[in-house]
Write a protein that binds this DNA or RNA. Structure first.
Lengths: 330, 330
DNA sequence: CTGAAAGCGCTTACAG
DNA sequence: CTGAAAGCGCTTACAG
């Protein structure tokens, strides 16, 4: 059963392939009678014609794919939401999403050169060479986390620094002068840890308070307990801590409990993410919500705007998607 | 700056395009001197030649894409792992991953007809028509959750029923006769709820115990409290409950606490997933781990085996990736 | 208004 | 051992 091509449609509707192409693509300049158009469309429909992406790509020199480059660290639930929104918006415009997970020994350039996507969207920034090469090839490049490029900074992702600032500010406002920072140990997430911690530091400096006392915390009780002890023994003692995320914060809460301490009485704890479990911890966890859904929507909008050639409307200040959820732990 | 084509490489190395193609593709029958091969490869390298995916696809009649069809419900962290492994394995074979999120008004057939992927991998089963049509088009079809097709059943996903059985069995063994089931209310997840609950029912029936008392639980304290009350008021009273997943179980634990009850003393609770927070709840949560990593690896292996034409080695019994993690809540 | 023809870049019988 | 040539299915100047 051979595939049905535009030639089949042409034959069936008694016109040339040119006409079929004009009709089906609604080519602007083409002057074709409504009657002919209807006939062509009916044929296409009846024969179940679907244009070949390969042929179209070969002809046009660029495909209908958008390459989404994922980083080498765990993104959590964010990806799902992101991919979903993005794929949805793209589908409405006849585009499809190609995902690539960055990894050692899997150069990005081979892929984009081979596939010639309409746009490349990166979770992390691209190397200047990659970026330049893609631009030259007429591929739209949308990066992320790219602090060097002010035009792109934070277009998609909430500024990690703002997260740290928000945590520290809340802790200061609730009467804590010397605060700790619980840093995740997963090396793949280092970039984020550094950025968020930077925010905490900046806030402390501006408030005239001492710099945060950093302790590594992985997802074990032992590690949480050690961190708690270190903070308590610190002089002056740490009375509140900003955790890298809710998982770390939840471990911390368990660490406090194991030491016979409570939050926020002995040590206040603030997390990041507002995971579902955060409302059910003992005590309920105060945290920073990143509004991933909202961010996903913005990313999709930005990509689409870029594709349609609009000047990327500078997205609203990042902090806007950030929200402090005050419960009981801090 | 025109793209470099095989003709450029041919010119540069002084051979025909035929030879370039033979060398670069290691075409089996081709007899070409080692010296010529080296020359061609050097030229390709130097010119930065990357074959056009579009042209190759047009010629071959099928692309180097594997279409991964995601369902219309939240997959959680699973997707990330799955995509990562799959994309990795595929990349090693020169294939790329195209994701499509199923949604109303976005027919799958348009996409696969347009793109002609090497294989289509589905998280959920495909309709018989889609499946047949794809097969006829020479596309490898790998479904999931497809209980109707024994050859495919559970190839990728752990049997949802086994999860329920495992939960119920543990509860029975620890002395509970009448158990409850906490069903998630998110409609997108209904399919899973039904399957897992089925497993619980089957286990109860076989053990000669009463059928599970089902209560809906969403992620609010109120809802958890209502469920707890209903179970306590049930005659005979429910002394243990299997929760749809850890999130629901964690809400339940909070509901018990709010009612002045404790687990497992008053009501035992067992979850599913072993999320990081599970080890830090009060009390630590007993749960079923699905070994998503292991499953992702298997999915990738199955897809790759299928692509290489091997008869899909029937994967080992599903239950094997399931593991009961006994902590304190049950 | 509509058609014949070129050409996108590749692979692969076919003929030396 | 190697090359000339056809053809995959489309779009788009170009010529009526």
């Amino acid at each position: 059963m051979r595939n049905v091509t535009s030639a089949d449609v042409a034959r069936d509707s008694g016109v040339s392939r040119t006409t079929v192409s004009y009709v089906l693509n609604d080519t602007p300049g083409a002057v074709i009678s409504e009657e002919t158009r209807a006939r062509v469309r009916a044929s296409a429909e009846r024969l179940g014609y679907t244009p070949s992406a390969a042929a179209r790509t070969l002809r046009r020199g660029r495909s209908d794919l958008v390459l989404y480059v994922l980083p080498d660290w765990p993104l959590g639930p964010a990806v799902d939401t992101l991919l979903d929104h993005l794929a949805g918006e793209l589908a409405e415009r006849g585009l499809s999403l190609l995902v690539h997970h960055l990894r050692a020994g899997r150069p990005l350039s081979d892929l984009w050169r081979t596939v010639i996507p309409r746009a490349v969207v990166g979770f992390t920034a691209f190397s200047p060479e990659d970026r330049e090469a893609m631009r030259r090839a007429g591929i739209q490049v949308l990066g992320n986390l790219d602090d060097a490029d002010p035009g792109v900074e934070g277009t998609f992702s909430t500024s990690q620094r703002s997260i740290g600032r928000l945590q520290a500010r809340h802790l200061h406002r609730t009467g804590h002068d010397v605060i700790g920072y619980a840093a995740a140990t997963d090396s793949r997430v280092r970039q984020f840890v550094e950025l968020r911690l930077d925010g905490v530091r900046a806030e402390c400096a501006e408030a005239g308070h001492p710099a945060p006392v950093v302790q590594p915390v992985d997802l074990t009780l032992d590690s949480a307990v050690s961190a708690v002890r270190a903070w308590r023994e610190h002089a002056p003692p740490v009375t509140a801590v900003a955790a890298y995320n809710d998982e770390v914060a939840i471990a911390l809460l368990a660490g406090l409990r194991a030491e016979g301490l409570t939050a926020p009485g002995d040590v206040a704890v603030v997390g990041v993410d507002d995971v579902p479990a955060a409302q059910f911890t003992v005590p309920p966890l105060t945290t920073v919500s990143q509004s991933l859904d909202e961010q996903a929507r913005r990313l999709a909008a930005t990509v689409v705007a870029g594709l349609e050639g609009e000047t990327a409307t500078p997205s609203p200040a990042l902090g806007e998607t950030l929200e402090l959820v005050v419960r009981e732990s801090a």
